[in-house]
Nucleic acid binder design. Structure first.
Lengths: 225, 225
DNA sequence: CCATCAAGTAACCGTTTAGTTACTGGCTTG
DNA sequence: CAAGCCAGTAACTAAACGGTTACTTGATGG
C-alpha cells in the first residue's frame, strides 16, 4: 500500500467533498443507513423492523445496506453499539468526581434522566435487546470495557462520601446506578401504558419536572447517612 | 391398528359424564390458546410472535385461533388484559390498609417485586406494548377501573402515615407506586443487558435478595419523615 | 481522456407470514 | 337415532419478508 498516494487521495477527496455535495459518498450513505436503522429498530423492535423501510428512510436501497453492514442482524448490533457509545461518552464528560460526593451523585442522576428523556430511541433499543435476552449484545466485543469506567468512578465518589461521613457505609455503586437508571427508564419507557391505566399524562412538563426532582431525592435518600 | 379397542375407549370416555376428558372442549381449547399466546407474545413481542407457533404450542391449529379470538391483534389484547387482571387481582388480596402504614408500603413493595419475579411474561408484555405506544391497551374498555382501586388504597395508607407523623407531607401515591414498580421492573426486564455490560449475574439468588431489600429500603427512605 | 472499480439501482427469488377455504367428524337435542 | 350444528383439520393463497443477482453510473488515477 502506498501511504503518500493514499493521503493525497484523501486530501483531494475531502476538498472535493467540501466544495460540493457528491452524488456518491460512502460515508454519507453509511451514516444515513445507520440513522434510519436506529429509528426503525427503535420504533418497531428487532422483529418488527423492516429492511425495506430502513433503506427507504435512508434515501437509498437495500443493496447498499447489505453492502455496508452484512445483514439485518449485524446492522442491528451496530445500531445498539453506537447507542451505548453515545450515552457512555456523554457520561464520561460529566466528571462526577470533580464535585462534592452529594453533588456528584445528584449530577449523575440528573444527567441520566435528561439523557433518557432526550434519547427515547436508546430506551427502546434496550427494551428490544432485553426481550431477546441480550442475544446480540453478548456477541459484542467492543462494549465490555466501556462500562467499567462508570462503575469505577461511581465507586470512588461513594468512598469519598463515606469517608466524609455523608453516605452510609454499605452504599453500593451498582445499586446506586441501578436505582438512578430504574427510576428514569421505567417512567419513560412505560409512559404509554402508565398514562393509559392511571389516566394521567406522564409526559406533561409539570409531571416530568416533578419526577426529575423525585429521582434526585430518592437516590440521595437511599445512601445518605 | 385395533379399531374396536379404540372406539371402545372413546365410548367409555363419553359415558363418564362429569370427569371425562372431552375430545372437543371449547373452553379447554380457548384456555390453551390463551396460555400459548401469552408465552409466544412474551418471548417474541407483538411483531415477532407467530400465529402458527401459538397454534402449535396450544396443541391445536390456526383455524381455532381465528375462530375464538378473531385475529392476531385481538388475541394479543386479550393476553394483555388477562395479564393486568392477574396482577391487580393478586394485589387487591394484600389489603395493605390492614397494617401500619410502614408495613403496608413495605408489603406492597415486596409483593410487587416478587410478582414481577414470578411472572416475567408480564414484564415482557408491558415492554412490547409500550414499544407500540400502548396502541392496543388504549382500545381496552375493561382496564380503566381496574387501577383506580390501587391508587385509592395507596392514597389512604399514605394519609394515615402522614397523620401518624411517620411519612413526609408531600408523599404522592402515584410516585410511591412508580418508585416500587420502577426498581423491580428495570432490574428484571433489563437483567440481560445489565448482566452483560457489568459482568455480574443479576439473576443470582444472593443478588436478587440484596435488591429486594434495597427496594423496600429505598421506597421507605423516600417517604419517611 | 479513458479504463477501472466502487457506488448505486431495480428487478427478482425462495421462504415465511397472517389469514381463508373447503371439508371432516364428534356432540347434543328433539 | 337422526339431524344439524359446531369443534377441529389441512391444504391453500396473496402479500410481505430478508436477501441476491445482474446490471448501470459516476468518480478518479494514470
Amino acid at each position: 500500500m502506498d501511504n503518500s498516494a493514499e493521503t493525497g487521495e484523501k486530501k483531494k477527496a475531502k476538498r472535493v467533498a467540501s466544495e460540493r455535495v457528491l452524488q456518491r459518498d460512502p460515508e454519507r450513505t453509511k451514516a444515513a443507513i445507520l440513522e434510519a436503522a436506529t429509528r426503525e429498530f427503535a420504533e418497531n423492535g428487532m422483529g418488527g423492523a423492516r429492511v425495506d423501510a430502513i433503506a427507504e428512510r435512508a434515501g437509498t436501497n437495500k443493496r447498499m445496506l447489505y453492502h455496508y453492514f452484512g445483514d439485518k442482524e449485524q446492522l442491528y448490533l451496530r445500531v445498539l453499539e453506537e447507542a451505548y457509545v453515545g450515552i457512555r461518552t456523554a457520561e464520561r464528560a460529566l466528571h462526577i468526581g470533580d464535585r462534592s460526593p452529594e453533588e456528584g451523585i445528584g449530577e449523575l442522576a440528573l444527567f441520566t434522566w435528561r439523557y433518557f428523556l432526550k434519547h427515547p430511541e436508546f430506551l427502546s433499543l434496550l427494551g428490544t435487546e432485553n426481550l431477546h435476552r441480550a442475544r446480540w449484545l453478548r456477541q459484542s466485543v467492543r462494549l465490555k470495557e466501556l462500562h467499567s469506567h462508570l462503575i469505577g468512578e461511581l465507586a470512588r465518589v461513594l468512598e469519598r462520601g463515606k469517608k466524609e461521613g455523608v453516605f452510609i457505609e454499605n452504599a453500593d455503586p451498582l445499586h446506586v446506578y441501578l436505582t438512578i437508571a430504574s427510576l428514569g427508564y421505567f417512567y419513560l419507557s412505560n409512559q404509554h401504558t402508565l398514562s393509559t391505566i392511571f389516566g394521567r399524562e406522564l409526559i406533561e412538563p409539570s409531571n416530568l419536572d416533578s419526577w426529575e426532582q423525585h429521582i434526585v431525592h430518592v437516590t440521595l435518600a437511599s445512601i445518605k447517612r
